[in-house]
Design a binder for these strands. Structure first.
Length: 141
DNA sequence: CTAGTGACGACGA
DNA sequence: ATCGTCGCCACTA
């Protein structure tokens, strides 16, 4: 296995850890999870991982889009599954959208919350550390 | 190398 | 709040 493979795997493990760190009844956005994992700008990587994931243990249902919407198309199998699992935890889901909390923002606060420990962010740029500026103003007018 | 695709994210209209 | 467009990443053809 090459270094790249190892690095990819490490990133994957970190992402999985970040997802498992989401408290029951709480939710987080893909981008938030990626950031928490030290992979800013890799929201899509998180999504790809989940699509590949098969671990029933993983609380994947707590990961939503940044706008609080479930990422699956309404009515799809995954959609129903996720909605059900979320509601089972007491999360209010309506019209494919989670109400009661804003997906994300709370993650870090829940873990390290009010000055509990050092900033996790630690921002382990792992590498690459690109701008990761998701959506940098196009020149459209 | 270019194009297309996807459990994404942000911004402008 | 909704929609369309653009940006970024990782992967596949």
């Amino acid at each position: 296995m090459s270094n790249q493979d190892a690095g990819k795997d490490a990133a994957a493990q970190r992402i999985l850890a970040a997802i498992r760190a989401i408290p029951r009844g709480q939710v987080a956005g893909y981008g938030e999870v990626a950031r928490r994992a030290g992979l800013p700008g890799r929201a899509r990587l998180v999504a790809r991982l989940l699509s590949q994931n098969d671990d029933r243990d993983l609380p994947w249902h707590r990961v939503l889009r940044s706008d609080g919407r479930i990422a699956f198309p309404e009515g799809s199998k995954g959609f129903r599954e996720q909605s059900q699992r979320l509601r089972a935890e007491g999360v209010r889901v309506e019209a494919g959208r989670v109400r009661g909390q804003r997906a994300a923002a709370t993650l870090d606060e829940q873990m390290w919350g009010d000055g509990m420990l050092a900033p996790p962010a630690s921002a382990r740029p792992v590498r690459k550390s690109r701008a990761a500026s998701t959506g940098g103003k196009r020149a459209r007018s």
